[in-house]
């Protein structure tokens, strides 16, 4: 695997909705490169004809009955909101 670059880390930060100062970016680039080059070792393993496992239980979709139940009261749902207005969450303007 090729070395991870600062530019890539900036791109990943953008995808993850995070931001870093220059010093933190350098540190993260170094650490991420170290970690990712270590875990890339799994590419040594022959996995031809092996299916991927996403979780360990042999279950597929789990459906519930389509029944009307009482839901969370609006004031409860809003009780932790940093900002609210009427019956909704208030956010800054969408750019």
């Amino acid at each position: 695997m090729s070395k991870i670059t600062k530019k890539e880390v900036e791109h990943i930060a953008k995808l993850a909705e995070l931001e870093f100062g220059d010093e933190a970016l350098n540190k993260f680039t170094y650490q991420l490169d170290q970690i990712l080059s270590h875990v890339a070792k799994i590419n040594e393993v022959d996995t031809s004809n092996i299916k991927p496992t996403s979780h360990t239980l042999e279950i597929k979709n789990v459906f519930r009955k389509d029944e009307i139940k009482e839901s969370v009261p609006v004031e409860d749902a809003l009780s932790n909101a940093p900002e609210k207005a009427d019956s909704g969450f208030l956010v800054p303007k969408i750019d």
């Binding site: 875990v39 799994i42 590419n43 393993v45 996995t47 092996i50 299916k51 991927p52 496992t53 996403s54």
Partner: peptide, 8 residues
């Protein structure tokens, strides 16, 4: 790849 190695 990790999911496949998980199966192994």
């Amino acid at each position: 790849k990790a999911q496949r190695v998980r199966t192994k």
